[in-house]
């Protein structure tokens, strides 16, 4: 690796760390403001809202943990320190460290989100390729139907799609279980499909739009003129170009998957971060909710790093750009 390469890598690491720091600081600030602007004694909010049955020692412990006896600006610094050091405190409702709860629930949600993401991409690519390569009157009619289907799929609410899948495939056809059992791949099927279909609709629209654009782009014509077969043009040239916008909007996919996971985990009785979050919201278990928000924010930072690497791998122009920057 050359000196400029090392410099570029160091710059990248610093930029990534800076972004992570920004995300965590902003998240901590929003949480702080939200809790203070809600009005009332913040201890009450921390301990489960008005009428909570917290004993005096719990109140004292919460005051110390959140530094609530300090001036406001110091309280803010305490909150910031707690979040930055991932000192998330104890769950008020369950009386265990929040970090333990989160690490126990994180894998289940990660598995669900990743399988759904994979399935969504498979569906989106298949539909986009079918819709753009369809020929003839029947083919074009089918492509139009697929296009409408994409829009409907992209707005399907998870709670409704999941319920319909349960009614059809669990209680009527008995193909897949409606409730989750640990270690059973069959029980992952319906939750995965529920999360994947709306995302596939969204990704499919993006991929199809840019695939249609790429099919008539000069580089595709050049490849065809050189005698490349349609499959080769698709596989080597246009598809790679077509997935880029959808990859760049992975943040949207992240939001859709996590928002959906909240609903899906409750609907299918799956353990996971989403269900933990809903349970904590119901009893206003603030430390758990804050912890979950911080973990989600950090996961987003990891995602942006992965997406950046993917874009570099997919888009030669970006790599050329970096080389030029490094050479300058």
């Amino acid at each position: 690796m050359s000196g400029s390469g090392v410099r570029a890598a160091a710059g990248w690491v610093l930029r990534t760390l800076g972004r992570a720091l920004t995300v965590v600081v902003v998240t901590a600030t929003v949480v702080f403001l939200a809790l203070r602007l809600a009005g009332g004694d913040p201890v009450e909010a921390v301990l489960g809202g008005p009428g909570s049955q917290a004993g005096p020692e719990a109140v004292a412990a919460a005051r110390a943990q959140y530094g609530l006896d300090l001036p406001l600006w110091q309280q803010y610094l305490v909150q910031l320190r707690n979040v930055l050091t991932l000192d998330l405190g104890d769950s008020y409702a369950r009386r265990v460290p929040v970090s333990d709860l989160l690490t126990a629930q994180l894998p289940a949600t990660a598995v669900l989100a990743l399988t759904s993401l994979a399935l969504a991409w498979v569906i989106a690519l298949a539909v986009a390729v079918l819709a753009t390569t369809a020929r003839g009157r029947l083919g074009r009619a089918a492509a139009r139907v697929l296009r409408g289907g994409e829009l409907v799929a992209s707005v399907l609410p998870h709670f409704w799609l999941g319920a319909v899948l349960i009614v059809v495939f669990a209680s009527t056809l008995h193909w897949f279980p409606a409730t989750s059992t640990p270690g059973s791949p069959a029980s992952l099927v319906l939750p995965t499909v529920t999360l994947a279909v709306p995302l596939a609709g969204f990704l499919g629209q993006l991929v199809r739009d840019s695939l249609e654009e790429a099919e008539s782009a000069p580089f595709a014509t050049t490849a065809r003129a050189r005698g490349a077969s349609p499959t080769r043009v698709l596989g080597r040239h246009t598809l790679r170009h077509a997935v880029l916008p959808a990859v760049s909007l992975s943040g949207w996919a992240f939001g859709s998957l996590l928002s959906g996971a909240v609903v899906v985990e409750v609907l299918f009785g799956r353990p996971g971060l989403g269900r933990l979050l809903v349970d904590a919201t119901l009893v206003r278990d603030v430390p758990v909710v804050v912890g979950a928000v911080v973990v989600v924010a950090l996961a987003y930072v990891v995602l942006t790093v992965v997406v950046e690497a993917l874009e570099l791998a997919l888009d030669p122009r970006r790599r050329a750009g970096d080389a030029l920057v490094a050479a300058a």
Binding site: T22, V23, V26, T27, V30, V31, A34, L35, L37, A38, A45, G251, F254, G255, S256, L257, L258, S259, G260, V262, V263, L277, V278, A280, T281, R284, D285, V286, V289, V290, A292, V293, V296, A297, Y300
Partner: peptide, 17 residues
């Protein structure tokens, strides 16, 4: 940053408050 947080997660945080 707020845009990066999933809408449902942000909404649950606010409902908790």
């Amino acid at each position: 940053v707020l845009y990066a947080l999933p809408t449902m997660v942000l909404a649950l945080l606010l409902v908790t408050v």
